[in-house]
Design a binder for these strands. Sequence first.
RNA 1: GUGGGCGUAGCUUAGCGGCUAAAGCGUCGCUCUGUGGCAGCGAAGAUCGCGGGUUCGAAUCCCGUCGCUCACCCCA
Length: 430
Amino acid sequence: MQKKQRLQAPTGMHDILPEDQPYFEKVYATAKDLATFYGFSRIDTPLVEDAKLYEKGTGVTTDIVEKQMFLLRTKGGDVLALRPEFTPGMARAYLQHGMVNLPQPVKLYTSGPLFRYEHPQAGRFRQFHQVDLEVFGDESPAIDAQVIQIFYSLLKELKIPHLTIEVNSIGDNQCRPYYKKLLVNFLRSRQYSLCLECRRRMKTNPLRILDCKEEKCQRVRAQAPQIIDHLCDKCKTHFTSLLELLDEADLPYHLDPYLVRGLDYYTKTVFEIIPERAQPQEGGKPSSLAGGGRFDTLVKVLGNKDVPASGAAAGVERIVFLMKELGMSVQISQTPKVFLAQLGESAKKKSVKLLEELRQANIPVAESLGRDSLRAQLARADKLEVAFTLILGQREVLDNTIVIRRMDNGIQETLKIDKVVEEIKKRLKK
RNA sequence: GUGGGCGUAGCUUAGCGGCUAAAGCGUCGCUCUGUGGCAGCGAAGAUCGCGGGUUCGAAUCCCGUCGCUCACCCCA
């Protein structure tokens, strides 16, 4: 005998159980409505992409590429990665299908699972889901504002309270290299006041030192030059105009000069939407529900075409977690209001056909064909909290009738079986 | 990568050296063979995460290991 081995889902990956599905459906449905309204078209890209896509797109010095990719090798020797984020795949699809030749901007949305190999903890999993929007071919700050607006509205519609929008600009290829030098020069003199990780970052990705959570690094950065004071004219105008648009739209933003985000491709606008926790928990800081920004150079990096772009994504599990924490009850999937009980072989046979007739009439109906006693079937009907139970027994089969029973007061009447669909429809309307 | 917490029925837990590992919820059945909610009775369901050690005896003590979880880092 083999040792019995307990099989379970891999670390950081979870089953989304039936009782949680309504929450996920609600998030997806709301996102779909919003995206559709704002002119986004659905696209689905593969779960795996060539790992090089992320190395080039997301950036080799980012945590995501450096240590969080699930890699697999094909028989032919290609190295593929389970997608750790959507944006590079979306950009690849845009290029591959010649969407540069479509009327611009091209607005795309998608949703689905993403994979990052990291230590799971609250609100952070190895397989998780995002809703993602990308706009290609438009450099206007109005697009950035619209993307922010959509994600803010999404969270609002899902009734997540106390949202803060953190925004910043991290410049572009004109001004950022200059600022980086400025920053590194400033930091060099105080590098021994920085944490080890940040000392390493000075060479690889100095901007990230700005959002280091170490207290000593934060003390240093308080003295550091801020990027918004060193934007080139173009970026400055873009950012000013974005803030005006946000003001105009009454979006409650907060300018966080240290927000830089961990992905290489961002230019100009970056933002995150952060909730206030319903129940402040010890130690648990609120993590962002949505984040994104502008990435005007990504398409160029991947396909040598100059296409400005902007986009963002929201974490579905995190939103669902909050909805549940807030005690929100969500009911989407239509639960049956009718139960069909049967007694005896002939009735059971007839039930199969009747069920199908009810289905075609779009009446959700539950049954328990495996149970024979009426008592057990009614108990089941009760548990399901249906409004009516149809009872079909030997007698009824002979008379071509059926009994309809109100579950709230037990009153029942007998009617002709060919009238039952119509009658149920009528009663359910009330 | 680095730390803390936790592993006993499907779920929540009790038991912390000694009968056949216990209860509540849930599931199924019976009382009640054509009438639910209540109640009573009963059944199924656990090699106490796994391996080793100590002991006459281990779910319980010790060591190891695996898994889960929380936190740091980073992010959605």
